[in-house]
Design a binder for these strands. Structure first.
Length: 558
RNA sequence: UGGGGGAUGGUCUAACGGUAAGACAGCAGACUCUGACUCUGCCUAUCGGGGUUCGAAUCCCUGUUCCCCAGCCA
């Protein structure tokens, strides 16, 4: 039966009921993107819902259908990218890949059916006139003067629309419903408009294209969709969805159910706004690792498993909400903590010379690839007289509760030795440029045979063996939790959302890193190779997310 | 009286007439060769007012408040 681990949201309960009452014996959902842009994390919620249901229920499937009814906005590039994103998220539509454009002929015939039944008419009102006739939210509209054309005239005109006899904008096909309806969507909505535009899939076969409200229920019905899930703003459109199914000889009448779209704190999730970020150069593109697009977060190092877990945890409801990004980060850390191999990388290096370590010698030490998972094995790391540690792991005048390196203090070098800071070397400007330390040969591997407690353990790299790389540190794109609410969202962009470090030194083993594989730089965070800008002679790593940092919280408060 | 939909801790989600639950965040502590992970404990909620009931987040009335809708976009 169904998976007990998945919470029973109201949609799944509807489906449970439909199965229990025998209304349906199989369940069919669909994910219906318009190929006019890239998928973002909001789409992930819908994908996980629709494809998730298909996976959970015994006889169920989910279709991927492109809602390609507006050729001026749609491109093959997006069709390809969307499929790649859905696959990456871990879902499979099998043979069920569809396009609304595949149904154009049927949709057209249905339109003639409506005309013949006196339920649709060709209207010559201009766009502006139609707006005037539509009325307002509080005042009813009035009938178009063309509303009473005969069936014959409508049929003739509509066929000539199809034949390309009219320029764009002069004639449309409208449903004949009710111009006085409180629901504006029912005030004789447009069904077809003329567009002398080539379509990515149908080419120049058509110069009239059906509208979403008319196309969607037909597409759903033709595919045998049982539950047509969409976002809240389509709630008002449901009467039209139902009207369409009720008045056409379609094979079934799917049930449209609406749920709240995903909003995330400190980010924007709307194609229009994301497009603006791209167009105004605030980010490097749709796949900028700071973007909430699937291509962006994939490049950033987010994992499909973390995304799926996230989508499951946020639930499905009808309440407008803003989910805390920290939940997303939590899901990510939880997944990455399990799977990422540990490695050492020094983001901002400070040179350390081990004064009592014999010059010209080096040795190999053993480091665990994952402390909680021995099956991931271990590796050898080189140790020598000259090392680099993180600048932030040394304080000339240590703050209270700071238990890393400071003058006269001891600290453990992870998997290596206990060292003690003997001398601090500064340059003419007074900046610390090097530390002279001594090491305790008895503590090889990091153990303390005498039982002494060393509170601090820090990461390091061997100066001689370290690999210089570029590292990109990302922070949230916006400074406000809800950038969409207050004024122009562009005004609260975080100027520090990207920090590029070019002095970073990492273990040489990272030369073999590949995109899509995450590493934990111990004590720093999770990183992955950048799939776009990294080159063999100039590796670029993206920081996916930091580790939780209690110390930053403590020290930041003082 | 335009139409449609919502209101449960800081955030998200459960409970569907019977002890308001979980997750995230936060706080305090334990553990630790990652100030990570893990573990323990704590904090904080039913929009207001009336009713019905032995008993209401849940049912009724009323008020408040938030969101969506006037594309030949989806």
């Amino acid at each position: 039966m169904t998976n007990d681990n998945i919470p029973r949201d109201f949609i799944r309960k509807f489906i449970d009921d439909d199965l229990a009452t025998g209304k349906h014996t199989e369940i069919v959902t669909r994910f219906p993107p318009e190929p006019n842009g890239y998928l973002h994390i909001g789409h992930a919620k819908s994908i996980c819902l629709n494809f998730g249901i298909a996976k959970e229920f015994p006889a169920a499937r989910c279709h991927l259908r492109f809602d390609d009814t507006n050729p001026i906005k749609e491109e093959q590039e997006y069709i390809d990218a969307i499929q790649a994103d859905v696959k990456w998220l871990g879902f499979d539509w099998g043979q069920h890949l569809y396009y609304a454009s595949d149904y154009f002929e049927k949709i057209y015939q249905f339109a003639e059916h409506l005309i013949k039944n006196g339920q649709a008419f060709v209207c010559d009102l201009t766009a502006e006139e139609m707006r005037e006739y539509r009325g307002t939210l509080t005042e009813p509209g009035k009938n178009s003067p063309y509303r009473n054309r005969t069936v014959e005239e409508n049929l003739d005109l509509f066929r000539r629309m199809r034949a390309g006899e009219f320029p764009e904008g002069v004639r449309v096909l409208r449903a004949k419903i009710d111009m006085t309806s409180g629901n504006v969507n029912l005030r004789d909505p447009v069904l077809y408009r003329v567009m002398h535009t080539s379509h990515p899939r149908t080419g120049n076969a058509w110069c009239i294209y059906p509208m979403y409200d008319y196309t969607h229920p037909i597409s759903d019905a033709l595919e045998g969709i049982t539950h047509s899930l969409c976002t809240l703003e389509f709630e008002d459109h449901r009467p039209l969805y139902d009207w369409t199914c009720d008045n056409l000889p379609v094979p079934c009448h799917p049930r449209q159910i609406e749920f709240a779209r995903l909003n995330l704190s400190y980010t924007v999730v709307s194609k229009r706004k994301l497009l603006r970020l791209v167009k105004e150069g605030k980010v490097s593109g749709w796949d900028d690792p700071r973007m909430p697009t699937l291509s962006g977060i994939r490049r950033r190092g987010f994992t499909p498993a973390a995304l799926r877990d996230f989508c499951e945890r946020i639930g499905i409801a009808k309440k407008d909400s803003i989910v805390d990004v920290e939940l997303l980060e939590h899901c990510l850390r939880e997944d990455l903590n399990e799977s990422a191999a540990r490695v050492m990388g020094v983001l901002e290096p400070l040179k350390v010379v081990i004064s009592n370590y014999p010059e010209g010698t080096e040795e190999e030490l053993t480091a665990q690839n994952h402390p909680k998972n021995p099956e991931m094995g271990s590796r050898q790391i080189s140790f020598g007289r000259e090392l680099y540690i993180e600048r932030g792991d040394f304080m000339a005048e240590p703050a209270k509760k700071f238990f890393r390196l400071a003058p006269g203090r001891e600290v453990r070098l992870r998997y290596a030795y206990i060292i003690k800071c003997e001398e601090v070397i500064t340059n003419a400007a007074g900046e610390i440029v090097e530390l002279r330390c001594s090491y305790d040969p008895a503590t090889r591997g990091g153990d303390t045979p005498d039982g002494r407690k060393i509170k601090g353990t820090i990461h390091w790299v061997s100066a001689k063996h370290a690999l210089p790389v570029e590292v990109r540190l990302y922070d949230r794109l916006f400074r406000q939790p809800d950038p969409e609410s207050e004024g122009d969202f562009m005004d609260c962009l975080n100027p520090d959302s990207l920090l590029v470090l070019d002095q970073t030194l990492v273990e040489p083993a990272l030369a073999a890193a590949r995109p899509g594989v995450s590493y934990q730089f111990e004590r720093q965070g999770y990183f992955c190779l950048d799939s776009r800008d990294s080159r063999p002679d100039h590796l670029v790593f993206n920081r996916t997310v930091t580790l939780r940092d209690t110390w930053a919280k403590v020290s930041g408060q003082e």
